[in-house]
């Protein structure tokens, strides 16, 4: 080995070491954040914390209304965004011709995914809360979150649909199937795990968002549970924001406990998505 190639190997070693160091530090840092919240928040978790409403200016009691509220908002988002997103994905993957209009649809989806969440909040306030007179409500907040989640669902579902081999479609059509039959009997079932993964990841984002619901449906403090879609609701992310910044003398443990519950909610969805994905990969026949 001559001098210059030795030097090159040293450069490579140093560079590889540097890269692996950066990558590991990033990952360690992420793990640290999660572990930190778990260890600090675990002490706050009790039956009362999960299953009762806050009192004493939120400095005591639990966070049940916020948990239920986030659950409602997530379900509301799913009900609105999943059919619409799936339909749009089916259109793009199975029907859309390769033309200018389709390109504009794709640009629109990319732009929807890039619009800041707080701008969605403004839009929801302008359209749903004020113009459509839904008021600050679960309905208005879910609609806002649904439009925000739509691009995530469309693009992941489209990707899953496109991953189904084209040959399956051709065979189905050649056997006398209509497009719709082909989609219903082969394409959708085969793409379902991928679609579900995308849907859950989209909803995970919606569940953790604060800015879009601040002016559209989230309440600062509501001891009782919402009873209708037109009620405002507490929500975990907004609650965490409130108790971390707006309430003086807030016990630190309640803050960590709230962060922990939100984290478990979100990471739980992430975990479910990963399980669906890896199971589907193992079972896949193509």
């Amino acid at each position: 080995m001559n001098h210059s190639s030795k030097k090159r190997m040293v450069v490579q070693k140093v560079a590889f070491a540097g890269m692996s160091l950066v990558a590991s530090l990033t990952v360690v840092f992420i793990i640290l954040i999660v572990v930190y919240i778990f260890s600090m928040g675990a002490g706050a978790i009790s039956f009362e914390f999960i299953f009762s409403a806050p009192y004493d200016g939120m400095r005591s009691g639990g966070i049940l209304p916020a948990i239920i509220g986030t659950f409602y908002l997530t379900v509301g988002t799913a009900v609105l965004a999943v059919p619409l997103g799936l339909g749009a994905a089916i259109y793009l993957s199975e029907y859309a011709p390769d033309n200018q209009v389709t390109r504009i649809i794709r640009i629109a989806i990319t732009n929807l995914s890039g619009i800041p969440s707080v701008v969605y909040g403004l839009f929801g306030l302008g359209l749903f809360v004020l113009f459509l007179r839904l008021g600050t409500s679960i309905l208005a907040a879910s609609m806002t979150l649904a439009i925000m989640t739509l691009p995530v669902i469309i693009s992941t579902a489209e990707e899953a649909l496109r991953a189904v081999p084209q040959s399956f479609r051709v065979v189905s059509i050649s056997l006398g199937g209509t497009r719709l039959q082909t989609i219903r009997k082969i394409v959708l079932p085969e793409a379902m795990p991928g679609i579900l993964t995308g849907v859950i990841l989209g909803l995970e984002r919606a569940a953790g968002e604060t800015a879009p619901i601040m002016f559209t449906g989230a309440a600062f403090f509501l001891p009782q549970l919402p009873t209708s879609l037109t009620d405002a609701t507490m929500a975990l992310p907004y609650h965490l924001f409130v108790i971390a910044t707006q309430v003086p003398g807030m016990p630190i443990q309640i803050q960590f406990g709230t962060a922990l519950v939100l984290l478990v909610f979100v990471l739980g969805m992430n975990l479910i998505a990963s399980i669906i994905r890896s199971r589907a990969r193992a079972k896949r026949q193509w």
């Binding site: 040959s167 399956f168 050649s174 082969i186 896949r284």
Partner: peptide, 12 residues
Amino acid sequence: VGMVFARPVVLP
């Protein structure tokens, strides 16, 4: 009209 393709395409 039945059709068979170059690669065997069995459905899943």
